[in-house]
Amino acid sequence: MKKQDKPFAFRGKYLLVAVLVLYGIFFLVNSGGALSALQKSSTILTKILPIFVVVILFTATLNYFIKPKQIAKHLGQKSGMKGWFWALAAGVISHGPMYAWYPLLDDLRSHGMKDEYIVVFFASRAIKIPLLPIMIDYFGLTFTIVISLYMLFGALIQGLCMQLATIKDT
């Protein structure tokens, strides 16, 4: 049987309404602060728009070239060591805020990506390759190397803990 596409529906409508209400209250209490917050949000949105474009293009390219079966093979139940490696590498390479990657991960998860790999992806994002020189400048080379190595190991262990929790729950 052909898999039916999910009908289009906005997600987080109520959250958006709640945030708008929050802005309304903030505006009544401190209009200057509310305007500054709005300005900050607009700046963030402008900055991460290119990342959103990259995420959309990346999702489309993945869906075009890689079939759901292949995604499940590389990141699903029987992916083995490869899955851990891909999740770790993707997390380290990924750029921008965590929530910018939610749509792509949601898509991969619907195709069979395991939860432990999502945990590894998020945890390994703590390593920011473009920012390493700044980290070295502020905290020194030893600190940067040590914390980066522990973050990588930590990300894998967190993934394993998530795997154990998933097994225990099922």
Binding site: D5, F8, A9, F10, R11, G12, K13, L15, L16, A18, V19, L20, L22, Y23, F26, A37, L38, Q39, K40, S41, S42, I44, L45, I48, F52, V55, I56, L57, T59, A60, N63, Y64, P97, Y99, A100, Y102, P103, D106, D107
Partner: peptide
């Protein structure tokens, strides 16, 4: 495929906008 991916991203727009709004506050 690009259209489909854009639509799934668009579906998440309220969620992302709300998060960005919270970050601003």
């Amino acid at each position: 495929v690009l259209q489909k991916s854009s639509l799934s991203f668009l579906a998440m727009a309220p969620l992302l906008l709300a998060t960005i709004g919270l970050v601003g506050i």
